[in-house]
């Protein structure tokens, strides 16, 4: 269970990451998250929704979207399939979620398997447009919308957060932790012309 220790450690180490002039794009890593995938078992969708509603006071999204309640969120990543995040939950989160939804759904711990980056800044859409083959225009991809797709040959789930205080867009991107260095290389080179500020790993 080596990956039990990974969720609290940054996937990208700030040392050696270049700070580029300009402030067009910012990126941080959300560290310490509890991450799990949850898949409803056959015919148990309605019962699972009811159990999640009662416990977390939220409605599981039936489409690619993120729904939050307190420190927990569920993102639709496929039919009857969700990515669950818990701030500060670490690997313990998946166990408690598994116990909560048994036997209605299967839960797999991904706390050491996925990494979540938060990206923003005035030029973030121009940066993401270089890699994501989906429409991230504010009219097409609204706050709370999510998409599971591919970026630079890396599978990724992206969702839009509320805009920043300066009105610029904010997104979060989940991808396999082992590919985070490859993602960083794509992101940094795509954002270079706008100025990319690495703001470190933020403990949740």
């Amino acid at each position: 269970m080596a990956d039990m220790a990974l969720s609290g450690l940054p996937a990208l180490l700030a040392a050696g990451l270049p700070q580029q002039p300009g402030g067009g794009v910012t990126i941080t890593e959300r560290c310490g998250l509890g991450i799990a995938t949850m898949q409803a078992r056959h015919g148990q969708d309605a019962s699972l929704r009811e159990r999640i509603r009662q416990h977390f006071l939220l409605e599981l999204p039936g489409r690619p979207a993120i729904v939050r309640a307190g420190s927990v969120s569920f993102t639709g990543i496929g039919p009857h399939h969700w990515l669950a995040l818990s701030e500060g939950g670490g690997h313990v989160f998946s166990g408690s979620l598994r116990a909560l939804v048994a036997p209605l759904a299967s839960v797999s711990d991904q706390s050491g398997g996925y990494v979540v980056f938060r990206v923003g800044g005035p030029a973030i859409r121009d940066t993401l447009a270089k890699g994501f083959p989906i429409d991230l225009d504010p009219r097409a991809f609204k706050p709370g919308d999510a998409a599971t797709t591919i970026v630079s040959h890396i599978g990724a789930t992206i969702w839009r957060c509320d805009d920043g205080a300066d009105g610029s867009a904010c997104f979060e991107i989940a991808l396999f932790r082992s590919l985070s260095q490859s993602f960083w290389e794509w992101f940094a080179s795509s954002a270079a012309e706008f100025g990319c500020q690495w703001q470190g790993a933020v403990q949740q």
Partner: peptide, 8 residues
């Protein structure tokens, strides 16, 4: 197969 999407 939607391999790089919903995996459906």
């Amino acid at each position: 197969y939607h391999a790089n999407g919903c995996r459906g």
